[in-house]
């Protein structure tokens, strides 16, 4: 295979895992550097902007809570698109993408739940309520854990890919429920103040650190996702090479 055949000219060229590995090697240092720079700017803004006149200092919790919550939903959406890739187009990297994303999504959902709780105690007077928003995000967290368990329960990636892809797509119904729970039901959690059809209602003093932190978290997600996909490709290569070695050993021992 010459270097020329590994060139990526169109999106479908990424279906070749070797091409993907070459691309990952090239883009990961840039993504990692950009993530660090964006986080540096975001953290500086998070601690130098004013506190809220009602929430005081606790408004700064929002700068990690809201991006984590957005990422928890975006990660699941990436998994749902990957699941479609597995079931509809049988894209060889789609299952790798879904499998690599699950633990990252679980971590961001955990972070959204914990930081939300740490904000809720001083502002609402309680760590937790079973309102529609909090409960649906908790269900999302359990779904991530369930998918991770399912992926690890089956040895054959080809079999687990189809089963978990179906489960990911069924679970996707939870994403609009999370997004619109604050409008459909009477929740203690406040309604959306940034992603609104009539524009953000949040003061620019809080909006800027939030946007920069959200960009940092998004870059972090893609950096980790590409790196985790690369790990998963390597893991599958190790498994197939070990099988190949076992077959060769079996043949040699059978030979007269």
């Amino acid at each position: 295979m010459s270097d020329n055949s590994l060139a990526i000219r169109k999106f479908s060229d990424l279906a070749n895992p070797t091409r993907f590995l070459a691309l990952a090697d090239r883009v990961l240092p840039w993504f990692a550097a950009l993530t660090v720079l964006t986080f540096a700017a975001g953290l500086w803004l998070s601690f130098t902007t004013e506190g809220d006149y009602q929430q005081g200092e606790t408004v700064r919790i929002m700068y990690v809570h809201v991006p984590s919550a957005w990422l928890s939903m975006m990660c699941y959406t990436v998994m749902a698109i990957s699941a479609l890739g597995t079931l509809v187009w049988r894209h060889p990297l789609a299952d790798v993408s879904a499998k690599a994303a699950a633990p990252i999504g679980a971590c961001f959902t955990f972070l959204a739940l914990v930081t939300g709780s740490l904000w809720g105690k001083p502002m609402w007077g309680t760590w937790w309520v079973w309102d529609a928003r909090l409960t649906s995000v908790f269900v999302l967290f359990l779904m991530y854990l369930g998918l991770m368990a399912l992926n690890r329960a089956m040895d054959d990636p080809a079999r687990s890919a189809r089963v978990s892809a179906v489960l990911v797509l069924v679970g996707f119904v939870n994403i609009p429920i999370i997004k619109f729970s604050v409008e459909w039901w009477n929740t203690l959690h406040q309604p959306a103040s940034v992603m609104r059809l009539d524009g953000p209602t949040i003061d620019p003093e809080f909006l800027w650190p939030l946007i920069v932190m959200a960009a940092g978290f998004t870059l972090l997600f893609f950096t980790l996702h590409i790196a985790a996909m690369r790990n998963e490709i390597w893991r599958r290569r190790v498994t197939s090479l070990r099988r190949q070695a076992a077959r060769n050993a079996g043949r040699e021992s059978l030979a007269p």
Binding site: E57, T58, R60, I61, V64, H65, S68, L111, V114, T115, L118, W119, K121, P122
Partner: peptide, 9 residues
Amino acid sequence: YVFASYAVA
């Protein structure tokens, strides 16, 4: 609470 949130993150 703010410190705990950033520490967990």
